[in-house]
């Protein structure tokens, strides 16, 4: 049984179909990459899954429950976390607080609890802090815990986004171009990180342009072009898929490739 199942997903913006009848299945425990040229509809698909948009047509189920009309915060609570292509950290907050906020949906302190600071509240706070440090340790940001998020260098901001998503305790993680703007060494570290996440049992859906990364860690690749799914399969198959090559290189290039 698939962990997430999207059927016939269609999203129309002002008459233009950003996504056109796309089916997506994510099996528990796999790393699935979503690739395609710019504007192919990859981020739109992310936004549909995470409840930022509601699809014009189609349905999405997660753990056998329909989530199409749920709000983003409900979906996060159900176990889907995401990072953003254009980093959206809480810039004025500390690195640690960013990760603490990530645990929001797993904690319960309310206004009165906060004012009274009962022992239950204090112990929850300690647990949250410890867990946050653990996660920072995991992504290698423990030494920056007290820094303001906006003061981190770019690569570390990306890693903090990942830490924050991990803090929501998700089953499925959606990573939107996690390697964008990273140097080769940082990218290698990221590959290791995603591998370890996968080993921990996290299912990962990834948008990425870095082919080395995609081919290296994906068990399966799905290709979108102009809002349509044009291929879906293991990396070796995708690498040699005619339609995919055409989408990426264009009609003429394909002929040139053949001519070689």
């Amino acid at each position: 049984m698939a962990l997430l199942e999207g059927k016939n997903l269609t999203m129309i913006f002002g008459g233009l179909a950003a996504l056109d009848s796309v089916d997506i299945n994510i099996e528990k425990g796999e790393v699935l990459s979503l690739i395609g040229p710019n504007g192919a509809g990859k981020t739109t698909l992310f936004n549909l899954i995470t409840g930022v948009y509601s699809p014009t047509k189609g349905s999405i189920s997660f753990k056998q429950k329909e989530i199409k009309n749920l709000k983003p915060y409900d979906i996060t609570r159900m176990g889907i976390a995401r990072t953003f292509q254009n980093i959206r950290l809480f810039g004025e907050m500390s690195v640690l607080d960013n990760v603490i906020i990530g645990q929001h949906c797993r904690t319960r302190t309310g206004v009165f609890g906060a004012i009274l600071r009962t022992s239950a509240v204090k112990s929850e706070e300690k647990k949250v802090r410890d867990r946050a440090m653990e996660i920072l340790n995991f992504v290698g940001l423990d030494r920056e815990a007290e820094e303001k998020a906006k003061n981190l260098p770019y690569g570390k901001q990306r890693r903090l986004e990942l830490a924050r998503a991990l803090a929501t305790d998700p089953d499925l993680m959606l990573l939107d171009e996690p390697a964008a703007g990273m140097n080769p060494q940082e990218t290698n570290e990221l590959i290791g990180l995603i591998d370890r996440l996968n080993d921990m049992g996290k299912t990962v859906l990834l948008i990425e342009h870095d082919m080395k990364l995609v081919m290296g860690i994906s068990q399966r690749i799905m290709v979108l072009d102009y809002g349509k799914k044009i291929a879906d399969g293991p990396p070796e198959k995708i690498r040699n898929d005619e339609k995919v090559i055409r989408a990426y290189l264009g009609e003429r290039s394909r002929k040139e490739v053949r001519a070689c």
Partner: peptide, 17 residues
């Protein structure tokens, strides 16, 4: 912290649950 998160980035705050 949730209040401040909303001020900083409402969309990201929603994504945090």
């Amino acid at each position: 912290k949730s209040f401040i998160a909303i001020r900083e980035d409402e969309l990201a705050a929603e994504a945090m649950g």
